[in-house]
Design a binder for these strands. Structure first.
Lengths: 342, 342
DNA sequence: CTGAAAGCGCTTACAG
DNA sequence: CTGAAAGCGCTTACAG
């Protein structure tokens, strides 16, 4: 409301004048205090303190063509990876970089366009894409770009999708318990993680000669899990559900209970993400713990390495994800064979 | 690894040369295409396209002393408000602003110092503090600052804390059901929200002449809820728990069950946040739905208004929070009076 | 060790 | 409607 009186930041010239030196000297002081004669240094030091001077970073970055700022580009939406972002910011700060979060409404193409723009804006030294982007050649950008999802791409080349190991482990484990008929409630297929899990699910079911009553394409919501399970015919024979994440799994469990199927007595359910609440739910959720923070840290380190022209750092951990077995999974009910007999 | 060839962004001078005009004209074109004679405009248009020119924003902001960038300063940690941040970013983008996320390790003083630095860095037009900060005079900063927590401060002056209404409503509701003996598992007391809820809890218990067996200062974790409830003496007589948030509430419920207390039969439990999983848990969680997105949007709008010297906008909604009653709360067990009789 | 000068890429009065 | 000039606040050779 009322106009607040704002301080005007002091400039390097004012400091120079007060110290009785040239602004060149002040600049030098800022870069390396020891490059000044002690007497001069003290004068400048005093003036800087007295004026509470802080250099204008916009001007500096214009001159040096470095901004010490990284952009993280991601999709807007409910899946906003808060903790990963926090970890990324922390890692960047430790290296003297700021993080600019660019959360873009729209699809992979829009994000790619935004990245292109950012790259030449002179406002960032590097870019991390945390959501999938539709970019032809990442190498013609003005600044380095690291794609978190590149894991996927790279691994795909090796015939292995991100998350593939875990989905396989889950299904093999359930099959080992005796389950034969499965359902997958997938996440939003806009997300490569959701697509990956789905295709590995189908692959593994096929390979092990199991039966899938289908894949329901959900939207990561609990409701989608609830709906998927309550829509199932009574005699479908499903005894195990692989849910896209823990929230979906909760929906599945609740939906199952609403039709008289107890978990894990009648139905086994797997989630994904190892969310805090899942461990204390009843039944506690079998799930996959994903160290998104570590992944984010890795990504920033890779980006910094590229910016500084150093070789790419080692991955911090070989296996970032691991499967956690809790109460929501158990052997199938003995009556299982009944409805499954075709 | 291999040195990637990077494009050098083209400058306004190159565009000018190609178009056969002065760079002044190009700049003018950038500001307002219609200020040029059609013939000129077309020449410039062509050159901009041909060179795929995008202005260097660092240079522009140096000249105009505006950056179109807002900083959001918050604490690092598990409570990273992802969705609020996403909403804030979206709102800012719509107004043509970028968001810089500055997540600071340390306490309120450290954050305040960081804000002071940011304010004079020339890199942001305004700052939003999402975590509590220890700042003497916010009015002497070089750029506008909006404090999300100012709700607290302002309301406190009016004798009302943020969240006070809801805590009161919860306790009055539970008392109305017949509950007389309560427990509060508080959140990390570093957070003003946690402190507020705690003090209103104590106040209301006192005012209504109820009994509190104590307040356990937790850390927002499910484990803290679990521990709090399992540590209770068997004859404490507690029949209702107000937990700091949904995660804590899940811990409480699980802990209660571990000692044979069923929720809500033996114990009523309230959470806070209305997290997705709570609605589908069994029992589903009574909780407080908090529209953090709306709060974040409001905060950005207030900040933008200050930056543009406009009057502060209206709050988007009078009541952002509301209490949700679900299965985790019910009347106390009839045997209640027993252990309570002193 | 220090200063005068040039320049980073823009925008904005000021003339014409 | 367009251009020449000044300048935003810095850093960095280049002299001395």
């Amino acid at each position: 409301m009322s106009e607040v009186e704002r301080k005007r930041p002091s400039t390097i010239h004012e400091v120079a004048r007060l110290a009785g030196v040239s602004h060149t000297t002040v600049s030098r002081y800022l870069q390396d205090k020891d490059s000044l004669k002690p007497k001069t240094r003290i004068k400048v030091e005093y003036a800087v303190k007295a004026l509470d001077y802080r250099p204008n970073l916009a001007a500096r970055s214009m001159r040096t063509r470095r901004t010490n700022r990284l952009a993280i580009v991601l999709a807007t939406g409910p899946n906003f990876p808060g903790r990963a972002l926090s970890a990324a910011a922390e890692t960047a700060h430790q290296a003297g970089y700021q993080i600019e979060v660019v959360s873009v409404e729209g699809g992979p193409r829009v994000r790619a366009a935004r990245i292109d723009e950012l790259a030449r804006s002179g406002q960032v030294d590097g870019i991390l894409a945390m959501s999938s982007i539709d970019l032809k050649s990442s190498r013609s950008l003005e600044v380095p770009l690291v794609r978190s999802e590149i894991h996927d791409e790279k691994l795909r080349v090796l015939g292995e999708l991100a998350g593939a190991t875990e989905v396989r482990e889950i299904i093999e484990y359930l099959a080992g318990l005796g389950h034969r008929t499965f359902l997958h409630v997938a996440g939003d297929q806009e997300f490569s993680s959701a697509r990956n899990r789905k295709s590995v699910y189908l692959e593994t079911i096929e390979r092990l000669g199991l039966r899938s009553v289908g894949v329901v394409d959900g939207d990561w919501s609990a409701q989608s899990g609830y709906d998927a399970i309550t829509a199932l015919p009574a005699d479908c024979g499903v005894t195990a559900v692989v849910a896209a994440n823990d929230v979906v799994a909760m929906g599945v469990i609740r939906g199952a209970r609403s039709r008289g199927w107890e978990v894990p007595r009648d139905l086994s359910v797997f989630g994904w993400d190892d969310e805090a609440m899942g461990q204390f739910a009843t039944p506690s959720l079998s799930t996959v713990s994903v160290d998104r923070e570590a992944q984010a840290r890795d990504a920033i380190h890779r980006l910094l390495a590229e910016i500084q022209g150093k070789p790419a750092p080692e991955r911090s951990a070989r296996t970032l994800n691991h499967v956690i077995y809790r109460e929501s999974t158990a052997p199938p009910p003995p009556a299982d064979g009944r409805s499954e007999a075709q």
